[in-house]
C-alpha cells in the first residue's frame, strides 16, 4: 500500500483546528494586517512610480501575489516549524499513534490542516482586497478553494523538509534559501518575463509559487488562459508527489 489512510485522518485535522480556534485572535491578525501593509507600502506607495504593469494598475497586479504568498507562508510554516514542535518537542505524534490512528494518517492530517490554514488565510484576505477594490468579483471567490490546493502543495513540500531536518534550526535553510527567493522571483512583484529567458524557465520548473501566482492572477483579473491549465496540472502533479513522499519520509523517521 502506498499510503494507509482512513477517515481517522479527520481526528488529527480536528486536533489542529481546535488548537487554532483556541488562539484565534492571534491567528487572525496576519491575514488582515499583511495585505493592508503590502498594499499601502508597495501598491500605493512604491506603486505611484509604476503606472501599470502590462496595462494593469500596480496594486491590482500584486493583489493575487499577496494571497499566494500568504497561502505559501501559512501552509509552509505550519508544516515545518509547527509540525516539528508537535512531533519533536510535544511528542504529540507519539501520543496519537498509540491509538488506532496510524502514522500515515497523522502526517496526512497535518498536511491537510496546513492546506486548510492556507485556505482560511485566503478567505480572510479577500474582504480586505475587496475594500481596496483590487480584485474582480465573483471570479475571486475561486481564490478560496484554490488556496486549499496550493496550500496542500506547500504543506507537502514543508513536511518533506520536516521529515529530514536534524533540528528545528536547520529548517531555516529551506525557509531562507527556498521560500524567500520564491517570494521575490515568482512573478509576484514584477512580471516573470522581465527575467532572462533561461531563468524564467528555471523559475517555472522549480518554483511552485510561479504557478500559484499565475493561477491566482487569472482569478483576480477574471482573465483565464489555456496556460493556466498547465499551471494547474503542474500544481496537481507536484502536490501528489510531495504528499506521498512526505508520508514515506516521515515513516522512515518515526518508525524505529
Amino acid at each position: 500500500m502506498i499510503v494507509d489512510i482512513t477517515t481517522r485522518v479527520q481526528s488529527v485535522w480536528r486536533r489542529n483546528w481546535d488548537a487554532f480556534l483556541r488562539t484565534y485572535k492571534v491567528n487572525f491578525i496576519p491575514p488582515f494586517v499583511e495585505p493592508v501593509l503590502y498594499l499601502l507600502a508597495l501598491g500605493f506607495g512604491l506603486g505611484t512610480y509604476i503606472e501599470a504593469v502590462d496595462g494593469i494598475p500596480y496594486p491590482v497586479f500584486i493583489a493575487p501575489a499577496l494571497v499566494s504568498i500568504s497561502v505559501m507562508y501559512s501552509a509552509f510554516f505550519e508544516c515545518t516549524y509547527s509540525s516539528f514542535v508537535r512531533m519533536y518537542y510535544q511528542k504529540t505524534f507519539d501520543a496519537i499513534i498509540a491509538t488506532p490512528v496510524g502514522i500515515d494518517e497523522v502526517i496526512a492530517g497535518e498536511m491537510l490542516w496546513g492546506a486548510t490554514r492556507g485556505m482560511i488565510y485566503a478567505a480572510l484576505m479577500l474582504p480586505v482586497l475587496l475594500i481596496f477594490n483590487v480584485v474582480a468579483m465573483p471570479s475571486s471567490l475561486l481564490l478560496i478553494p484554490f488556496a486549499f490546493l496550493a496550500g496542500l502543495l506547500f504543506a507537502g513540500i514543508a513536511m518533506c523538509f520536516t521529515a529530514i531536518t536534524p533540528s528545528i534550526d536547520a529548517l531555516n535553510y529551506p525557509s531562507f534559501l527556498f521560500i524567500t527567493p520564491m517570494f521575490l522571483f515568482s512573478g509576484t512583484f514584477f512580471p516573470l518575463d522581465l527575467l532572462p529567458e533561461p531563468i524564467q524557465y528555471f523559475a517555472l520548473a522549480t518554483l511552485p509559487l510561479t504557478h500559484v501566482v499565475a493561477v491566482n492572477r487569472a482569478i483576480t483579473l477574471a482573465a483565464f488562459s489555456p496556460v493556466n491549465l498547465l499551471n494547474l496540472a503542474w500544481i496537481a502533479a507536484a502536490t501528489a508527489i510531495f504528499f506521498v513522499l512526505a508520508i514515506r519520509l516521515m515513516r522512515r523517521r518515526l518508525i524505529v
Binding site: D18, K91, D94, A95
Partner: peptide, 11 residues
Amino acid sequence: VPQENNLDPDF
C-alpha cells in the same frame, strides 16, 4: 502510559 509525558500542551 508512555514513559515520556506527551500530553497535549495546547489544551
